[in-house]
Each structure stands twice: as C-alpha cells, then as structure tokens.
C-alpha cells in the first residue's frame, strides 16, 4: 500500500456519531486502533483513515482521545502526573480501554 494514504490525522467515530480527528501517532498508541489502521492488513479503516467504534460512546471516546494525547505527551517523562478521570466514567472507560488495548 502506498504511503500517501498515511495522513497525519485520523478520525475516530463513536457509536452516537461523534467524530474525533486526532494525530495518527497518538491514535496508534491504542493497540486495536493501530491494528485496524495498519495498511499491511488492508482493512477498510486503513484506506479511509477512519475507525468506527460501535461499542464506545462519545463521552467515553473523548476521554480516550484525551488519554492518548496525555500518553503521548508523557511517553518519555518520569513521574507523569495521573490523568484525572471522573469516577462516573471509570467503568465504561475501563471496558473501552480493555477493548482498545491501552
């Protein structure tokens, strides 16, 4: 697959229709997203640069995106401060995190 398809930003879509455009490098920190975007597997997600996540709602996905950027920012630093997570989101986020492998 040609490299020209590798855009800088990719789109994540939640089950209630919210779209999040985030840096590919950040999105690929999540194992499941990385695999679905990997051109060598030839999924439709890879050519469209767009991943639909039917099990995750907009609120949770927003938090996931926040985490991905947070993770990218602190990847090399020591003693990274813990990201704030609202308690009511925890369970859904946990399941999403397990699904996405982050």
């Amino acid at each position: 697959m040609a490299d020209s398809n590798l855009t800088e930003y990719v789109t994540l879509v939640s089950n209630d229709g919210f779209e999040f455009k985030i840096l590919r490098s950040a999105a690929c920190l999540a194992g499941a997203i990385k695999n679905s975007l990997d051109p060598t597997y030839g999924f439709k997600e890879g050519s469209d640069n767009r991943v639909t996540l039917p099990t995750i709602n907009g609120v949770t996905l927003e938090k996931v995106c926040e985490y991905l950027y947070y993770n990218q920012k602190y990847a090399e630093s020591k003693d990274a401060p813990d990201m704030e997570i609202p308690p009511e989101l925890c369970l859904e986020l946990l399941i999403a995190a397990d699904y996405l492998d982050v």
Partner: peptide
C-alpha cells in the same frame, strides 16, 4: 517503572478502587 504514563486500564482501576463504596 516510573517512565511514561500508566495505562488507561490501570488509571481506571485505581480510580475505581478509590470510589469502591459508590459502585
């Protein structure tokens, strides 16, 4: 190791344990 951030799962689990009484 203290390098990098914790995984999202780890963060969520720790938070859940903190609010265990409310679940």
């Amino acid at each position: 190791t203290t390098r990098g951030s914790k995984t999202l799962q780890q963060l969520c689990i720790e938070k859940l344990a903190k609010h265990s009484e409310d679940i």
